[in-house]
């Protein structure tokens, strides 16, 4: 087996072991609740992938996770840990909804849709740039700063919404103009919409940027060793700001899924938790765009399936299952890395 093939095999093997461990742990919990694991897993699969509506809803739930997974992975490849997706997607969605509702009715879709998406990306990117610049120029750690900015973002959005933008007696903004809406894909009443393709486009761009461009090489070099990168003549500070800005922008575009493609307004609570879940998706997907798509589909399946099996087991069980998968992946990831390092040495 070639080294590359061997590496891929070990990665897939590690994830497969993690999933099996998680399923076994889940089975024990299901048994404690007096249900049959085969039945619960069966319902989970048949209701998510067994009919058109289920497939549509599952892909819809996976879409934001592809974005946030890519966002975390991009920063991670540059050696940065972006825990601020939660806030970035919040300001992205909010800005997207405000611009979408402020546009004149006659704005053509060809202008309205890209504009609204660009605003979402810009807002998320701006929020990502702050911890990037702080890290690059003051050395203060991006983990602390992104976490803190999450609080600031949620408080600021809620305050501005309540004070100026929310429709009276509700916690949502006015509707966006109809030409800014991303069309529903019309899969038997599911919420799946055009932003699903946007997520794939983002994954493609991610690959071109990170693996096929000079800028991506620089980012990765900074991630591997900032000192070596600096010696090689790479502007490390600029690279850090660029990475955090791009990471924030991808997270901001989650707004396209919720605002442009689904609710057509921003609502308090939309997308909550998707940013943190993105960390798990990036981890499970090994920071690789194809891996991230599969990881997002897995978590999307669990999250949509969780609603379906809620008839048999409480929702906390699915949350535990997700956490066990993440733990198992983290453990197998460490052992796989060690095996790979050993293989490389021999």
């Amino acid at each position: 087996m070639t080294k590359r093939g061997n590496e891929l095999f070990l990665q897939v093997y590690g994830v497969a072991v993690a999933l099996l461990v998680a399923m076994a742990a889940g089975s024990v919990l299901i048994l404690i609740f007096g249900q049959s694991p085969a039945n619960v897993y069966g319902v989970l699969l048949s209701k998510t992938w067994g009919n058109a509506h289920g497939i549509g809803q599952t892909l819809f739930k996976s879409t934001p996770l592809i974005f946030t997974g890519l966002s975390v992975a991009l920063a991670f490849r540059a050696g940065l840990f972006n825990i601020g997706c939660e806030g970035q997607l919040l300001v992205g969605s909010f800005a997207c909804a405000l611009v979408g509702s402020a546009l004149p009715m006659s704005t053509p879709a060809l202008l309205a849709v890209p504009l609204a998406i660009a605003v979402a990306g810009l807002a998320g990117g701006a929020l990502g740039a702050i911890p990037g610049a702080l890290r690059a120029y003051t050395g203060s750690h991006e983990v602390i700063n992104t976490i803190m900015l999450n609080f600031i973002a949620s408080a600021a959005v809620l305050w501005a919404g309540n004070r100026f933008f929310f429709v009276e007696e509700t916690t949502h903004t006015a509707e966006i103009v109809s030409t800014a809406e991303l069309p529903s894909l019309g899969i038997s009443g599911s919420a799946l919409n055009g932003s699903f393709f946007l997520a794939f486009a983002c994954a493609g761009l991610f690959w071109v940027l990170m693996d096929r461009s000079r800028r991506g090489f620089e980012l990765r070099a900074v991630g591997l060793s900032p000192l070596a990168a600096e010696n090689a003549g790479i502007d490390v500070r600029r690279s850090i700001v660029v990475a955090m800005t791009l990471s924030g922008a991808i997270a901001g575009i989650v707004g396209a899924n919720f605002v442009l493609g689904y609710k057509h307004y921003f609502e308090e609570g939309l997308g909550r938790g998707m940013g943190f879940m993105g960390i798990a998706v990036a981890l499970l997907g090994r920071n690789n765009p194809i891996g991230i798509i599969f990881a997002a589909l897995l978590f999307g399946t669990l999250s949509n399936g969780g609603l379906e099996v809620n008839a048999f087991v409480p929702k906390e069980l699915i949350e535990v299952l997700q956490a066990v998968i993440i733990l198992a992946v983290a453990i197998t990831s460490a052992t796989t890395q060690r095996a790979l390092a050993k293989g490389g040495a021999s």
């Binding site: 919420a191 689904y262 939309l270 909550r272 938790g273 998707m274 609603l307 409480p314 929702k315 949350e319």
Partner: peptide, 10 residues
């Protein structure tokens, strides 16, 4: 029992 916001409508 829904989780995040989009689960409610779903």
């Amino acid at each position: 029992e829904p989780g995040d916001g989009s689960d409610r409508e779903s």
